[in-house]
Design a protein around this nucleic acid. Structure first.
Lengths: 246, 246
DNA sequence: AACAGGATTGCGTAAAATGCAACAAGAATA
DNA sequence: TATTCTTGTTGCATTTTACGCAATCCTGTT
C-alpha cells in the first residue's frame, strides 16, 4: 500500500520541527522537503489550523504547536504501567539518589514515559517523550533481552563503548537475561551509567523497563551491587503489582 | 487559503483517536470522517508508518501512537517557564497540600504544561497536556484577565456555577485584575476549587499562570485567605525569577 | 468448515495538489 | 522616510494524487 503523500509530507514537517528548537521558515521547509514554497506554505497553514504548528511572534519562524502536548496526554493516560510505576520510581530515586526512569518499546526505540528526577545538580536529563536506541541503553537492552523486539538493523556507535557487533550484542543480551538486569556503561552517553530491569505483566510478558541513571562519578563500581539490588528489588515489586493489574 | 484536504483528514483522525481511549476501527473512522473505508484505511496506514497510530494486538482497534509523545517533549522543552517553575510548583504543593498546576494559553484554552500532585487520596487530575476552557477555570481566567486572549466566543456552562454571560464575565475579570488572583468555585468541575495567579516575564507580559486545585471539602472558605496568600507569594517569586530569565 | 464482518488493494477517473509567477507583507538598509 | 531585498501568500492552468467502487483477503465466531 502506498502512502497518502500529502499527509506524509505534513507528518515529515512535524518531524523536522521537532528537531529544530529555533524554528523553521517556509523557505527552509520547502527546500528540505523538495517542494515548491507555495506547497510548503499550504501544508504549514493546514497544520497551524489544527494546532500542530504555530509561528513565533519575534523570530517569525514556525515551531511545533500545542496540539501534540494534548495528544500526548491521551497516549500516556492509556498506559496502566505509568500510574502503577509512579510510587516505585519515587522510591527508586529516594533509595539510590539517582534519576529513575520508566520506558516502553515504541517504534524500535525505548520511549521514556515517566521519570523522577534526582535533586542532585549533575543529573541525566531524559524527559518524558525521549526516544533512545535499544542497543546501548540499559532500559533498551532490557527490552531487547526480555521482550519481543528484534535486534536493531544497524547498531550505531554513540561512544567508544557502544556494542556495534551483532554477535557481541547477542552474547551480551544472553548475559543480561542470565543476570536479570542490564547495565549501560557509557555506551550511549559518555560518563553516564544506567541500570535497568524488565517489568512483566500478569502473563509474564515484558511490558516495559525501569531503571536509574547517573554520572559515572557517582555510579561507581563500588556502588553497583547496592544500586543493582535496589533496582532489582523495586522492579520486582512493580512487576508483582502489574501481575494484579489487568 | 484552502486547506490541504488529505492532511486535514489525517489530523482529524488524530483528534478522534485522542478522544477514543478504547480505540477505533477503520469502519468507524470512515463513517465519522464521511469517507470510503479504503480511504480511511490508507490514511491510517500512513499515520501508522510514521508512528502516529498503532493497532492494539488484542482488540485490533487503532489508537494514537507513540510519536506524539516524542513531539510533545520538543514542545515542552522549548518553554523556559516550565523549568523555572518546577521548584515553585513543588513548594506550592508542599505549602498548601494541594495539587499545583502550571498553564499557558494555547488554542484559546489553558494548556497544562506541568503539575505537582498532592499526596492526598482525593485530588484533581490535570495531567500535562490537559486543555481546559479559559472562562471557568482559575488558571484560564487569569490568562484572560492579565493576558491578551480574547474572550471565548461561547461561554459554555459546565456547572450551575459557570459564568455564561459575557458581561458578567467581563465584570468578574475586572475583579480578578483588581485582586491579582482568580478563583474557580466549582465553575468547571463540581466540588473543585482552584486559585491561580499570573506569571509575568521581564516585560511584564503574562506568559502563563500558576495555581492550586483541590476538593471543596479541603479548600474551604476558612482556608482561602491562607491559600490565596501562598499562591500570590509563590507566584510573585516565579514572576521575579522569569524577570531574570530572558 | 462455513459464514460474517472488517480491512486491504487494484484501477479508472474525479478531484485535489502542485508549481509557476505575480503580488503582498515585512524586514533591512541607506 | 524611501527603497530594496527577502519571505510568504495566493490565483490559476496543469499535473498528479487520492478517491470510490468492488473484488478479495484476513480474522474471529459458531
Amino acid at each position: 500500500m502506498s502512502e497518502i503523500q500529502s499527509l506524509a509530507r505534513g507528518l515529515k514537517i512535524l518531524d523536522l520541527l521537532s528537531r529544530a528548537p529555533e524554528g523553521v521558515t517556509i523557505t527552509e521547509l520547502a527546500e528540505t522537503l523538495g517542494v515548491d514554497k507555495g506547497s510548503a506554505s499550504r501544508l504549514v497553514a493546514t497544520l497551524a489550523r489544527y494546532g500542530y504548528t504555530e509561528r513565533d511572534e519575534v523570530s517569525r519562524r514556525y515551531q511545533l504547536g500545542p496540539q501534540v502536548v494534548s495528544l500526548s496526554r491521551s497516549v500516556l493516560a492509556r498506559l496502566p504501567l505509568r500510574d502503577a510505576a509512579k510510587p516505585h520510581l519515587r522510591q527508586l530515586m529516594e533509595t539510590t539518589g539517582e534519576c529513575a526512569h520508566l520506558a516502553v518499546l515504541a517504534q524500535g526505540k525505548a520511549l521514556y514515559i515517566d521519570q523522577v528526577e534526582s535533586p542532585a545538580t549533575l543529573r541525566v536529563n531524559a524527559a518524558v517523550g525521549t526516544m533512545n536506541p535499544l542497543h546501548c541503553t540499559a532500559l533498551g537492552k532490557v527490552l531487547l533481552a526480555f521482550g519481543d523486539a528484534p535486534l536493531p538493523a544497524t547498531l550505531e556507535p554513540y561512544t567508544p563503548q557502544t556494542i556495534t557487533d551483532p554477535q557481541a550484542l547477542r552474547h551480551h543480551l544472553e548475559e543480561v537475561r542470565r543476570l536479570g538486569y542490564a547495565m549501560d556503561d557509557g555506551e550511549f552517553d559518555p560518563g553516564v551509567r544506567c541500570i535497568a530491569v524488565p517489568i512483566l505483566d500478569f502473563r509474564g510478558k515484558t511490558i516495559g523497563s525501569i531503571g536509574i541513571s547517573g554520572p559515572a562519578t557517582r555510579v561507581t563500581p563500588e556502588r553497583l551491587p547496592e544500586l543493582t539490588a535496589a533496582v532489582l528489588k523495586i522492579g520486582r515489586a512493580l512487576s508483582e503489582r502489574m501481575a494484579f493489574t489487568r
